[in-house]
Design a protein around this nucleic acid. Structure first.
Lengths: 115, 115
DNA sequence: GCTATACTGAACCATATAGTTCAGTGTTTG
DNA sequence: CAAACACTGAACTATATGGTTCAGTATAGC
């Protein structure tokens, strides 16, 4: 079982609650980038992007390093184990509660795949 | 592949970024509760708790129903598929960037299927 | 019918967030 | 060396958030 602290989950989910930040994370998954690169890609000022990167860095999803006058941004060390574990826990509860009403899950699965 | 919209993920992750709300969700996993029950359990005013429940309801994690003078709160219809998918996508990128050279991917696949 | 209960809504407060501009500082590069 | 570049920090704006109190409304129970 993964151990998690409220504050880390707060910071993590809060960091992920912004579409720009989620975009930055996925972008860095494709390769490293500078603040300028990201600011350009997401149509934002340097200063604005730096704040987002700061939030992601605080949450551990991004790591940065100053190289000359450029700040190099890359994916951070966190694998999101704790976040995944929390959601898995929810799903377990969800299934347990909806299992009680027989057949509902199958019905929902069908609705879902037909979306 | 699960399809997701930015706004839904914004609302979902934002709803989960508060420890009280995460607590409410897990609590409702144990059984239905009224606003009063939850306000009492989380040491908060009725009004404050109602706001939290509203946020969770908006995100689809909680459903409520007025029964007489009591509002009955229970788990909502969302299984957090989209949230799980987003995090899985991150992990895939993360692994590709950090562990492309060894067997960690296989190990993670096993963890997942053994749930 | 009267009173207690359970919620609701408006208003308020303090702080945080997402963004900006502007004025720097340090680094390359011609 | 001078100019362009990449970032940094402070300050400001607008809006959102998490919480409260207070004054209602509707229902339950005696």
């Amino acid at each position: 079982m993964v151990q998690y602290s409220p504050e880390r989950l707060d910071a993590a989910f809060s960091a992920l609650s912004d579409a720009t930040r989620r975009g930055v994370v996925l972008q860095l998954g494709q390769g490293d980038a500078s603040i300028s690169d990201l600011a350009d890609k997401f149509h934002m000022t340097l200063t604005g992007m730096k704040k987002h990167v700061g939030v992601l860095e605080q949450a551990g999803f991004v790591a940065t390093q100053k190289v000359g006058r450029v700040r190099k941004c890359r994916l951070g060390a966190r694998r999101m184990d704790e976040e995944l574990a929390w959601i898995a826990q929810y799903r377990a509860l969800w299934e347990a509660r909806f299992d009680a009403l027989d057949g509902v899950i199958e019905q929902l699965k069908q609705e879902e795949t037909s979306r």
